[in-house]
Computed example of a mutant assay.
Amino acid sequence: MTIDSHQHFWIYEAEKHAWIDDDMKVIRKNFLPEDLKLVYQANGVGGCVAVQADQTLAETDFLLDLAEKNDFIKGIIGWVDLRASDIDTVLKHYSTFPKLKGFRHVVQGEADHNFMLRPDFLNGIAALEKYNFTYDILIFPHQLGAALELVRRFPNQKFVIDHIAKPYLKDGFYDGWAILMKAIGEHKNVYCKLSGMTTEADYNNWTPEQIEPYMQLVLDAFGANRILFGSDWPVCLVAGNYTKTKELVTNFIAKLSSEEQAAIMGGNAMQFYNL
């Protein structure tokens, strides 16, 4: 089964979704399961992992409600304040929902380069393992050093890098990102999503050839058994459509064995998130 390991739902509100700028206005509207269901039918996708897009407990509950009503939503990645002093109580509550697989914080939006290494945040990460929750790392390349230190500190915690850590594709920056991604890939508790790549390039003029070296580095660093296909729908719509987004990955991995392709397109997500 093809599993999309990374997509979002929202009921659009201008203030809440202020990050959707004028260049992205095509996604200034509601995106809900009934919309995605049609996209998946057209693209042969059997299920997905829905990921938080807003940093509130209400967002986590919103996704849980959608997952309860839609069988194709196989898992959700919610948000909790990992820095909270009552984090254990909060996680204990959420551990009663089978489709809630893990959490994410929008670390890319934090000004502090070392946000993930602050004692209160580390305390929250330490609490995840007890409840078998995963953690999605959403960062920019300048935060990769902190990410490396984080995954090194928690060798038994399951981590996944979102959107290949958002390298500055548009500017062609590669080397610094590549060195740190290789180092992170050496830690077997860390996976990486082949997602969110076209939106880091020029929305209108990106080419598969431009993105391929980055995907190749991720494949070399993590191996076929630790990378996951993700669409980042509906955000991907600002740089193309779902089919183009999926084909960027399927065409790239066509050189691999059928077992490796099946793992990247669904098997790894099922295993990582325990779907």
Rank of each mutant, 00 (worst) to 15 (best):
I3Y: 06
I3T: 03
D4H: 04
H6R: 03
H6W: 05
W10V: 00
I11D: 09
E13C: 09
A14S: 12
E15N: 13
K16A: 14
K16G: 05
A18C: 01
W19R: 01
D21W: 03
D23S: 15
R28S: 01
K29P: 01
N30H: 13
N30V: 01
F31W: 14
L32S: 02
L32Y: 11
P33Y: 05
D35P: 10
L36H: 07
K37V: 00
Q41W: 00
G44E: 13
V49W: 04
V49P: 02
V49L: 08
V49E: 02
A50W: 03
A50S: 13
D54K: 04
Q55S: 15
Q55R: 01
Q55E: 15
L57Y: 12
F62V: 00
D65P: 03
A67N: 04
D71G: 10
D71W: 02
I73K: 11
G75L: 09
I77T: 07
I77W: 10
D81M: 06
R83M: 09
A84G: 02
T89E: 15
V90Q: 12
L91H: 07
Y94V: 00
S95W: 08
G102M: 03
G102R: 01
F103A: 11
H105K: 10
V106R: 03
E110C: 09
A111P: 09
H113W: 01
P119H: 09
N123Y: 12
I125C: 10
A126C: 00
A127V: 06
E129Q: 15
H142N: 14
H142E: 12
Q143P: 04
L144H: 08
A146L: 08
E149I: 04
E149T: 14
L150R: 03
V151S: 04
R152L: 08
Q157A: 13
I161A: 05
D162S: 02
D162C: 03
H163A: 09
H163V: 03
I164M: 14
I164R: 02
A165M: 03
K166S: 05
K166R: 12
L169R: 03
D171I: 00
G172I: 13
G172C: 11
D175S: 15
W177S: 06
W177G: 06
H187R: 15
V190H: 07
C192D: 02
C192I: 01
G196A: 11
T198V: 15
D202E: 14
N205C: 02
W206G: 10
T207E: 08
T207S: 15
T207G: 07
I211Y: 05
E212C: 07
E212G: 02
M215T: 14
Q216E: 15
Q216L: 12
L217M: 15
L217D: 03
L219C: 03
D220I: 04
A221W: 09
A221T: 08
F222N: 04
N225V: 00
N225L: 00
R226C: 09
L228I: 11
D232C: 08
V235K: 06
L237T: 11
L237H: 05
V238G: 06
G240A: 10
G240W: 14
G240R: 13
N241C: 14
Y242L: 12
T245E: 07
T245L: 12
T245Q: 11
K246S: 14
T250D: 02
N251Y: 08
N251D: 15
A254I: 12
L256Q: 15
A262P: 04
I264D: 01
M265I: 10
A269I: 13
F272S: 05
F272T: 10
Y273W: 06
L275H: 03
L275Y: 09
